[in-house]
Design a binder for these strands. Structure first.
Lengths: 403, 403
DNA sequence: CTCGTTTGTTGGCTCGACGCACAAAGTAGG
DNA sequence: CCTACTTTGTGCGTCGAGCCAACAAACGAG
């Protein structure tokens, strides 16, 4: 019906960029009149605006239209071991607001963390309102096992949380007019990396390194969540039977050999400033890179060791999933140029017919903000799924502005 | 538009069984008149038929309608190391025809195998025609790495094939009026296990043991194919660095410790009849089970060893994919009762919060026919996607019958 | 046997899509 | 500079499809 076609046009404008009504009609198999009507309705909704002429060809030049991001925003939030953060992205993906407060979640009460998060979301929502946009949704990323149907964080080792009903708790604190969703952090990072419309980014495997290691799988452009929502928990694949004990209580988990702690423990003595938890992550990683540049053998050996283990896991997952690209996110990206060669070597050696099935290894450019960006994008999906959903709030706003 | 709603109704009848028009309308959010019109059109197409009354409640009893399988069939075919086989399933999933010829593919020329396959498909198609049904499609499963966009079998170690353009070759030999698709064998087995409509079978991981080991992933009801179509190649995950050499040339692949050969090599001496390649698989497996029942320690130890390795791989994949159910197919199912306890133990130990994220382990009931069944079901998907596609052939048939 | 309940169908109505024609706005070429 | 051609965007008539309401049919309950 109607919203499906509107959705089609809106996605095409997002994925392929500004174009004329005639081009849209040709690409989507519509008549020019239908395309015109759909574009007119999207303009009416404030989601699309005219954008100059498309000169060049023969005949009458078309008046191109493009996504108008300004009308609506999605908010992404993130509850992590060391901080709570939010970001607001408009429909075109531009950053409208961003907040981040350091917070030692494992030493704070659950209530306090949720209060802080709700506070930060409210502030972000206010920023969106000031910018004249409507908030269409919030998606909160949490680091841990998230039972999706129940929206309960079953187990978050790094947060030291257990059985927290994040969804209902936050909804109660916010009383928001927009839908609130909860998602695993690695899954959101994967969503942020899988850019819609790019055929090379339809099958993406994201490996996200922090103190723990997580990740996410985007297959055929869709996030793979699994039966309860636990998919992408790569950190706890057992790869080294008889290895080191993990925070989850078991032995030989992948994150015991690839997590940030594994790298720093191998690279530095306990009294080394690298191991000082008070120091910000970024500075410690910069120091690792500095030492590696200077040729410090211990640092290089630690990086090699981590790279090898990342490669082992990447090769296993590449066999199972055949991703087009493997994105290294989080701290993996910060030291990515040091890790990449060994990882690629493992992939070549660990995948049959690698010349045909090999995945490209790429470094994320989103840094530690990937998860919250993905949350905002997930919230915006509702608009792309059914553009008419923004009609109600927008009409109310217009009526309010007119009176 | 129209075909989308027809598809909705048809799927509902497949997934939920026979029901009245009023029930359909209520479940699918349609008006009773719309549901009536849609059902009438499906009856016209020969895909749905009346099926008695639904007594019991108050008020007028409804006249239930159900899937009428008889009009159309999908054909699945399979090219495997030891045989070539086909099956025809009607829309309701009933077997209409089935053929299987033993064939040592690795010792035959590629042309001969393809000729035999085409011949068998033609015979199956003829059976379908005799049964009065129309063939709507063929999907061929092959054991090996299949480059899906190009429809080329890049590498099939067990067939000893390399760079065979199965799709174009078969299409040339068949000159079929229906679409011909090529798919990996493990993927088709996964499709056969993922019964649509069952919420417990929306996220399925299939592990399929033969001489090699393959499998497939169904996530959120959709087959996961990966970027080039190589997803589900579990057999070549490297799990034992420094282990045995694999047929693919590398070392320590999962199938070197879980494949049928690994079991038989460990369970019997080279001169044991168990290791005789001339003996049919089924008999050899029956013998394994017999010895295990008698308490033969060597057999039991071999099964334990295999079960342990299957468990290792299953735990890794369960972490990555969070399937609701792990289905053991192929030879794994034949000795499944012996393998299951150890696999479940590994899953419990290898997945964080297993009480929440643990997957059930189930044995396939489809035996070695899973892949071809999946192929037939995949072909039938075209009808469920757009029921109007059967209109053209059927109208031609009706016209022919009337004259 | 009558009433209430549920089902399936029919007819009037509205809305959205498609095809076509036409005006607008540029390029190519003499 | 002017004409012919090409392409774009829009307006209008027609048609088909779905929704609402009403109605006949078929059964259980009392």
């Amino acid at each position: 019906m109607r919203s499906a076609k509107l959705s089609l046009v809106l996605r095409q404008l997002r994925d392929q960029g500004p174009r004329s009504r005639a081009t849209l009609a040709a690409e989507l198999g519509l008549t020019r009149s239908a395309a015109s009507a759909l574009v007119a309705e999207l303009v009416e909704l404030g989601l699309v605006r005219p954008a100059g002429l498309s000169r060049g060809g023969m005949g009458r030049p078309g008046t191109t239209v493009e996504l108008d991001g300004a009308a609506v925003c999605g908010i992404g939030a993130e509850i992590n071991a060391g901080h709570v953060a939010t970001i607001a992205l408009d429909l075109a993906g531009a950053v409208v607001a961003e907040h981040r407060v350091p917070l030692d979640v494992s030493r704070s009460s659950v209530d306090e963390v949720l209060d802080r998060t709700a506070e930060l979301v409210a502030r972000t929502d206010a920023d969106v309102a000031v910018a004249g946009a409507a908030t269409v949704g919030l998606t909160v990323g949490v680091a841990g096992l998230l039972d999706r149907p129940r929206e309960v964080l079953t187990l978050g080792p790094n947060l030291r949380w257990r059985d927290v009903a994040v969804g209902t708790e936050l909804r109660g604190r916010l009383a928001a007019a927009y839908p609130v969703a909860i998602e695993n952090e690695g899954n959101l990072a994967a969503l942020a990396e899988a850019v819609p419309g790019d055929p090379d980014r339809r099958d993406v495997l994201v490996l996200f390194g922090e103190s723990g290691v997580g990740g996410g799988i985007v297959a055929d452009g869709r996030l793979l969540r699994g039966h309860q929502g636990y998919a992408g928990e790569f950190g706890h694949m057992i790869v080294e039977p008889g290895g080191r004990r993990c925070g989850c209580g078991r032995i030989g988990c992948w994150e015991t050999v690839t997590g940030l702690r594994a790298l720093l423990d191998a690279a530095a003595d306990p009294d080394d400033p690298l191991r000082d938890p008070a120091l910000p992550l970024e500075e410690r990683l910069a120091e690792v890179n500095r030492r590696a540049d200077l040729g410090d053998t211990r640092t290089l050996a630690a990086l090699d060791r981590v790279a090898g283990w990342v490669g082992v896991g990447a090769a296993i997952l590449a066999n199972a999933l055949n991703p087009g690209v493997i994105v290294l996110g989080g701290y993996f990206a910060e030291v990515g140029d040091r890790l990449r060669p060994a990882i690629e070597e493992h992939l070549l050696a660990g995948v049959p017919a690698p010349q045909a099935g090999g995945a490209r290894v790429e470094l994320s450019t989103l840094g530690f903000a990937a998860a919250r960006r993905g949350g905002a994008l997930a919230a915006l999906d509702a608009v792309f799924d059914d553009p008419t959903t923004v009609a109600a709030p927008r009409r109310a706003a217009l009526a309010g502005g007119a009176t």
